[in-house]
Simulated scan of single mutants.
Amino acid sequence: MWLVGLVVVALAVAGFFWMRRTRSELHAMIGTETSTIDELEELRRISDELGARGGFRRTAEVVGAAHPRPEGLLTAALSEAPCVWYRYQVERIYEQVEQRDGRTRRVRKTETVSEHTSEEGYALIDEQGRTIGIAPAGTKPEGVEQSVERFEPHNGGGGGFGFQLGGFNFGNRSSTIGMRYKEWLIRPGTRLYALGEVHDAIGPLVLGKPQEKGHFILAAKTERQLREERTKRHRLLAIGVPVAFVAGAALTIFDLVR
């Protein structure tokens, strides 16, 4: 019982840090006004005139439509759909024999055997046709389209199974039940919200992950939706974290002093 209590306490601690991050993201969105690309270009021009060419940095939020980089569109790995960003994940569903309390049982489990997030940059374009670069930096955008969600059962002979993706072979697993394929992408023209740090280190303006402290949020949602979601999450965590911590501590102490 004390072990369960410690797990609950650990979850409460993790929930506390998640609550703090949620509140910090909410405050960042509230405290940062949406800028037009023209406004950012004007601020960069002033920075250049002051002798800081290439050193412009400013926290900003921008809204626009996803636009491909100069080299053109990407091709998503699983769906082969044209896009500016994609991410895929391949999971193996399998059964494992476990011995517990003198009994044998088969437990279904899942493991990730392959995943990849595109690293190529893209851009946002506004109604005036002005663009700003986006450096995704491995960030998983919120609310993007899920282009693939399928399960393929293992029907191979002899109990073996294997598949190959991107040059990697993931061997034979006799306990494999099947494979689950997932993919997410951003198509050109998708309306995006971006909050991060704008800089001109490579010449053109680019919005990406802050060099030091700060948040980097990319989402196929409106700022209002993002604020409402974080407000609701913070309220739930503010209630759940103290309750979980007290319950976990009580279970642990009760079991130890029994």
Rank of each mutant, 00 (worst) to 15 (best):
L3M: 13
G5S: 09
G5I: 06
G5P: 03
G5M: 05
L6M: 07
L6D: 02
V7M: 03
A12V: 00
A14I: 09
G15F: 06
M19V: 07
R20S: 12
L26Q: 01
A28D: 09
A28S: 14
M29Y: 10
I30Y: 02
G31D: 04
T32I: 04
T32R: 09
E33A: 14
L40R: 04
E42T: 08
L43W: 06
R45N: 05
R53S: 08
G54I: 04
F56T: 12
R58F: 10
T59C: 14
A60H: 09
A65W: 10
P68F: 00
G72Q: 13
L74H: 15
A76H: 10
L78V: 08
L78I: 10
C83L: 09
V90A: 01
I93W: 15
I93C: 05
R100T: 11
R100N: 05
R103M: 11
T104V: 14
V107Q: 13
H116Q: 11
S118Y: 11
E119Y: 02
A123S: 07
I125P: 04
I125D: 08
D126F: 10
P136Q: 04
A137P: 04
T139N: 08
P141V: 04
E149D: 07
R150G: 09
F151K: 02
G157V: 01
G159S: 07
G160T: 09
G160E: 11
G160Y: 13
F161N: 00
F161M: 00
L165I: 08
N172R: 12
R173T: 15
S175E: 11
T176D: 15
G178P: 00
R180K: 06
I186P: 01
L195R: 10
E197I: 07
V198E: 05
D200N: 07
A201E: 13
A201C: 14
I202E: 15
G203M: 07
L207M: 14
K209Y: 10
E212V: 08
E212T: 01
F216N: 09
F216V: 15
F216A: 13
I217A: 07
A219C: 12
A219L: 05
R227L: 12
R227S: 12
E228P: 01
E228S: 05
T231L: 09
R233M: 14
R235I: 11
G240M: 07
P242L: 14
V243C: 05
A244E: 04
V246E: 00
A250L: 04
T252L: 02
I253E: 07
D255P: 03
V257Q: 11
